[in-house]
Amino acid sequence: MSLISKILPTQNVFLDMDVGSKKRVFEQVGILFENSHGIARSVIFDSLFAREKLGSTGLGQGVAIPHGRIKGLKEATGAFVRLKAPIPYDAPDGKPVSLIFVLLVPANATDLHLQILSELAQLFSDKTVREQLSSFDEAGQAYKLISTWEPYAGF
């Protein structure tokens, strides 16, 4: 079983979110986690935004994995967002981004969250995964694909 499946709640999959910029995505994500975890949306926004200042979290091919450490968070958690229209993201290949996985980890996180990050990168490096995630009509399908995906060792 993948680490991703343990940190992605069923309800945290959103298809065709209609936002026009990176900032607006982070705001929406902030609201989402404020409601589910009781952490101020500004804390989440600032953390994600600060990470982007170190360099874009875009992976290329329309995928981004924004991530940050959040004080007060007990366990790592995540959300998958598919945008209605791709947004500029300053990714290494210059392509706009439409598939976004947000990862939040506790302030005192261990090595574990690096493993999650690397799993996420592996998940989205698969062309068929990206194509399927772009074509699904229902959030449940996307959730199923992500949570049942198995990482392969030793890449």
């Binding site: 360099g55 992976l59 290494p92 690096l114 490096s125």
Partner: peptide, 27 residues
């Protein structure tokens, strides 16, 4: 992309990213 990723890793940082922020984030 597959080759670049295996060579350069998944994420890209800007050269002027402060080290302390990175060290905190990536342990």
């Amino acid at each position: 992309m597959a080759y670049e990723r295996s060579f350069f890793g998944d994420f890209v940082l800007d050269g002027d990213a402060p080290l302390t922020a990175l060290a905190e984030l990536y342990d």
